[in-house]
Simulated scan of single mutants.
Amino acid sequence: MLGVIKMDEKKVLKPIDEILADPWQVDIQELFKSFVNEPDEIKKNWYNALYTYVLQKRQEDIINRPGFII
């Protein structure tokens, strides 16, 4: 019988909540490096999704600033 590893959700979810709460506090280059260098396909996809989310939120913040013109 295989043992089940139980993770403390609060320890896992807090850092994710912090990343999602303020995308400007995230080192986006580190996220990109993690995505590029990750050999595990599932983790690679997760890093890619997180990188894309942070990048999109930063772009939205810039576009929504008063006086922003394309």
Rank of each mutant, 00 (worst) to 15 (best):
G67F: 05
P66R: 06
K33L: 13
M1I: 05
M7E: 10
L20M: 14
A21Q: 09
A49S: 13
E41G: 00
M7S: 11
G67E: 09
K14A: 15
W24K: 03
L13K: 15
Q56Y: 08
D17T: 10
D8A: 10
E18I: 12
W46C: 03
I69P: 00
D8L: 08
L13E: 12
F32K: 15
D8C: 07
Q29H: 10
I63Y: 09
Q25D: 13
K43P: 00
V12Q: 06
V26Y: 13
D61V: 07
L50P: 00
K43G: 00
V54S: 02
I28S: 13
E18T: 10
D17F: 09
D8S: 06
E41Q: 01
L31T: 10
E18K: 14
E30L: 13
L20S: 06
V12H: 01
M7Y: 09
L31C: 10
W24Y: 00
D61L: 12
Q59L: 10
W46I: 13
K11D: 14
Y53G: 01
I5F: 05
R65T: 08
K11C: 05
R58W: 10
Q59T: 08
L20Y: 12
R65Y: 03
E9W: 07
K33G: 01
E41C: 00
R65L: 12
K10W: 08
T52K: 10
D61W: 06
A49R: 12
D22T: 08
F32I: 13
D40H: 04
D17L: 14
D22Q: 06
I16E: 04
A21E: 13
E9Q: 08
V54I: 13
S34K: 11
I28L: 14
I42D: 03
S34A: 14
K33D: 10
D40L: 04
L31K: 11
D22W: 09
I19E: 04
K33H: 10
L55V: 12
K57P: 00
E38P: 03
I69D: 04
E30D: 14
K57C: 06
K6S: 03
I69G: 00
Y51F: 15
D17K: 15
D40Y: 02
K43I: 01
F68W: 07
D8K: 15
N48C: 03
K44C: 00
V36A: 12
E30K: 14
L55S: 14
R58Q: 15
T52A: 13
P39Q: 08
M1T: 06
K33R: 15
D8Q: 11
Q59G: 07
K10V: 13
I69Q: 05
P39C: 05
N37F: 13
V12D: 04
E30M: 13
P66F: 03
N64L: 09
W46E: 05
I5T: 06
F32E: 14
E60G: 03
A21M: 07
Y51P: 07
M1F: 03
L31Q: 12
K43N: 10
E9R: 07
E41L: 01
K10A: 15
I70M: 05
G67A: 07
D40E: 11
